[in-house]
């Protein structure tokens, strides 16, 4: 944090900044105005963030230490009881495990597919127009609303749907499969759907990163007789490392919070096989009206996200 050298202004002063710094006497007013002006410009966002972020977070933390919040006018302080209940709930552990698998596999696949597509689109063997056309096609899943993606994949993966037809025609499966309701297939199915929905986010950023790598680096490597793989591992990957870390951290944060895709396809089922922390918390709050316990679960999710955010901010700082 860069501490300003000027002491904070104490006198009340018009929010409107002073007159230009033309003459010497006007200087003081200008600098005072200049010091106060930014707070004026930040006032709307400060009010909104106070009402929409700081206050709600304080409220949810408070809820998590009470009993019967929201539904009952009298709620009692119960200390850590809600947290103990959540952390010892086997379903919470299942949800944590599912979220970890879902997030880990999704982020890895997003990275691999995103990098693959970005490198294709950066290939010197393709013309500009070809690149634009394919970039638009590749980015399309990311432009669809998650609710639409969920409905679309329910249609695609329906037992009588086109994916089952395709897999049966090539002999990969014997009969129709209900992907979203088979115990051992539901989690892979929602993961595949989420991979499809999210890889363009990596692709777009990695493509920008690839275009920023100096051609000299590749030429130098080519002169040294480096193979494609060596160039990939010694030039491409190291150059993209900062972007990859940023994207992966953001993707872990967001994927671990994914709600609509799960809610609209499996709803956490069958038999909690796709229960995620988000759906678990949502059900606690809005199906079972256990707002206090749901708040404890929501605070745990918040803590995890904030730890990841700290890594993200540190990484960003290190890059700048």
């Amino acid at each position: 944090m860069s501490a300003p050298t000027i002491p904070a202004p104490t006198a009340p002063s018009p929010a409107r900044p002073g007159r230009p710094a033309g003459a010497a006497p006007g200087r003081r007013r200008t600098s005072l105005g200049r010091r106060l002006a930014p707070y004026g410009y930040l006032a709307p966002v400060a009010v909104l963030m106070l009402v929409l972020m700081i206050l709600p977070v304080a409220v949810v933390i408070r809820y998590s230490f009470f009993d019967n919040v929201i539904i009952s006018p009298t709620s009692v302080l119960v200390g850590l009881r809600n947290y103990v209940q959540i952390l010892t709930d086997p379903l919470f552990r299942t949800a944590t495990r599912n979220t970890a698998v879902f997030t880990g596999v999704s982020v890895l696949a997003h990275l691999v597919l995103g990098l693959g597509f970005a490198m294709l689109l950066n290939s010197p063997l393709l013309g500009r127009r070809t690149k634009t056309v394919f970039r638009t096609i590749f980015v399309m899943p990311w432009l669809l609303t998650v609710a639409i993606i969920a409905i679309l994949w329910r249609l695609l993966l329906d037992p009588n749907g086109v994916v089952n037809f395709g897999l049966q025609s090539v002999g990969l499966i014997d009969g129709p499969v209900a992907w979203f309701s088979e115990l051992n297939l539901a989690l892979p199915a929602v993961t595949v759907m989420n991979i499809w929905a999210g890889y363009p986010f990596f692709m777009v950023s990695l493509l920008a990163g690839l275009q920023g790598i100096s051609a000299d680096l590749y030429e130098a490597a080519a002169v040294d007789g480096a193979s494609w793989w060596r160039r990939f591992f010694h030039v491409t990957l190291p150059s993209l490392r900062p972007i990859i870390i940023s994207m992966a951290l953001l993707d872990v944060i967001w994927t671990s919070q994914q709600f609509p895709l799960i809610w609209m396809t499996t709803g956490g089922g069958p038999l909690e096989r796709t229960e995620m922390l988000s759906t678990y918390t949502y059900k606690l709050a809005f199906s079972e009206y256990q707002f206090a316990q749901a708040s404890a679960s929501a605070v745990i999710m918040l803590l995890v996200a904030l730890v990841l955010a700290v890594f993200y901010v540190r990484h960003q700082r290190a890059r700048d």
Binding site: V57, V60, Y63, A298, L302, A305, L306
Partner: peptide, 24 residues
Amino acid sequence: LVNVVIVGIQAVPPITLLIPYFGL
């Protein structure tokens, strides 16, 4: 500090906000 807060806000899970929002 404000800068860090703004970046940090992007990490807050929507579900965490939803419960207090509902009351609010």
